[in-house]
Design a protein around this nucleic acid. Structure first.
Lengths: 134, 134
DNA sequence: TCTCTAATTTGACATCTATCTAGGCACGTT
DNA sequence: AACGTGCCTAGATAGATGTCAAATTAGAGA
């Protein structure tokens, strides 16, 4: 933390998206400080075994959504802990939720995982190839 | 550098399906506990703004590698701190390094980012696969 | 209204993490 | 050999994080 030198170059960052083509993969051009600061919390949200499984369970559940009771049952953790992890995922924008009667359902927010994937992804192959070539 | 452990990177992880084509994206089938436990540290390694930029700087640097002095200069952090982050990335298996004379060079370990990318998104997985195929 | 179940919030705790300063090792140069 | 520079390790510390038990909120039904 502190003032690092690189100014906020890009701004579009990761959130912007919108240009259908694609993202700025990690490997194409150096991430600005601002971009990194915006991406890191997203990766941090998924950088936990419980939350990874939660995402996976939700995504794979029929209808693309799952209620908390289903999720809690899949872990050896207390309900408050699961609730906490769901909150982290939701605050990061990865999932969303809605109450229906007694139960609360969660589903994946479309596009977010894909964007993260794109940032890590396509280019890496190219970079690896060029590295190998030398 | 001799004392530095070997990267634990691969071992199958989530790709374990064995069909060489590709991995099981998060959304295809629920992650097992073991898979999640193995993936989380990788995501945790990149879930930091400094480390994201380090990865990016290394990947974008000419030749696909960069020396510590180049990297340190890009941040407003002390050298030991950068060294710490590089160690985290190396222990996660994301990068590797070598000393050449006075300087130590770091480069991206090929494949690891792609695997993470593939896990997050089917679309990216397909892209990576097609890239690899060509 | 009262009660039962589902889910979240609160508060506490132990652990992990990012960062720094100080010091040490390796290499190249004088 | 001695020095200077590049990089890493060690130790310390403030702050973040994961977990649980207890308490709270919200809806369904008797």
């Amino acid at each position: 933390m502190s003032k690092q030198q690189l100014p906020i170059v890009n701004s579009g960052v990761v959130a912007g998206d919108g240009d259908g083509t694609c993202c700025a993969p990690l490997v194409c051009e150096p991430l600005s400080q601002a971009e990194a600061a915006e991406l890191a919390p997203l990766f941090k949200a998924i950088a936990d075994p419980v939350r990874l499984r939660l995402l996976s369970l939700i995504a794979c559940h029929e209808g693309g959504e799952a209620c908390v009771c289903d999720l809690t049952a899949a872990f050896d953790l207390t309900a408050p802990t699961i609730s906490h992890h769901l909150k982290v995922l939701k605050q990061a924008g990865l999932i969303d939720s809605e109450r229906r009667g007694t139960w609360v359902y969660y589903w994946l927010n479309p596009g977010v995982l894909e964007r993260l994937s794109a940032i890590l992804g396509p280019r890496a192959a190219a970079a690896a190839a060029s590295a190998a070539a030398s």
